[in-house]
Design a protein around this nucleic acid. Structure first.
Lengths: 144, 144
DNA sequence: CTTTTTCCTACTGAATTAATAGACTTTACT
DNA sequence: AGTAAAGTCTATTAATTCAGTAGGAAAAAG
């Protein structure tokens, strides 16, 4: 399961994608619209800024904006930033790999093979899920 | 990520599948062969027995056996038993569904759609991963 | 009636999650 | 210069989950 932190991050980013190129957005505004505790959201956005997903401006008239175009931000990278590994086993993780203690050999592990498969399918979907696609889908669903 | 509990459960079940129809297997034996803390494994096997995945016999000559054929036990059900939901969001979970607080409407949520997709692909793979298939794969990989 | 094995209840330490508090810094505007 | 409006940063905390342990009760076999 995704952590609340990660869910909040995704919701905030979708909101910012909607406001793309319409000037900085306050933490306060996002927190209210998306029902996220302000202080918690603060920490999340700060982390996303440090990872160069967001850009920020301090002081009056400040706020947050996307660092890149909505079509260049996908859920795979957001989830990795917020929750760490996407794979279900450390031994099939691309970014957080760790050897399996239980297994004799990775080559012959029939379990590993399954989760390698799950990982690949999952990354395929998440990697293709960009903010602009999510937005587009929401809009098209509204008119139906 | 899978919990250790779930990983232990899978390894134990694969071991029991290997010994299918060769008489009851002791907790002790599984614990040693698979490097699992005995007391912890005890609790896990007990849970699997209550879920009718395993059958047990007490006393001398006792031990654990699979309740069903190895071809009838898949990773989807094991993971649900051990770790709960497989879906990444409560609002797309089949067995542990909960409404999303953040979302206005599930119908028009562009985020939900992505994770519905991930869930379907994941269940497809895990549901098809039966103990006998895992065993077969391990054996075929050994001879290579 | 003793040995072997599973069954059951309760507990614990460590880590993670989901926040909250409060002071600091930067910027725009008057 | 002064002030209000933002984001920045460090620390703390309460609750929950995870991973495992302890110790004895119950059942079956011989």
């Amino acid at each position: 399961m995704l952590s609340k932190k990660c869910k909040y991050a995704i919701h905030a980013l979708v909101y910012l994608a909607e406001r793309y190129q319409k000037g900085p957005v306050h933490i306060q505004e996002i927190a209210e619209k998306k029902n996220i505790p302000k202080k918690f959201l603060e920490a999340i956005l700060l982390e996303l800024r440090k990872a160069k997903v967001l850009h920020s401006k301090k002081g009056k008239g400040g706020g947050y904006t996307l660092y890149q175009k909505p079509s260049e931000v996908n859920l795979m990278e957001i989830m990795r930033l917020m929750d760490g590994p996407i794979a279900l086993l450390p031994c099939v993780s691309l970014n957080y790999y760790e050897r399996c203690e239980e297994c004799r050999s990775e080559k012959t592990c029939g379990i590993r093979d399954v989760f390698l498969n799950v990982r690949d399918e999952t990354l395929e979907i998440l990697g293709g899920s960009t903010l602009d696609k999510i937005l587009k889908r929401e809009k098209s669903m509204l008119t139906k």
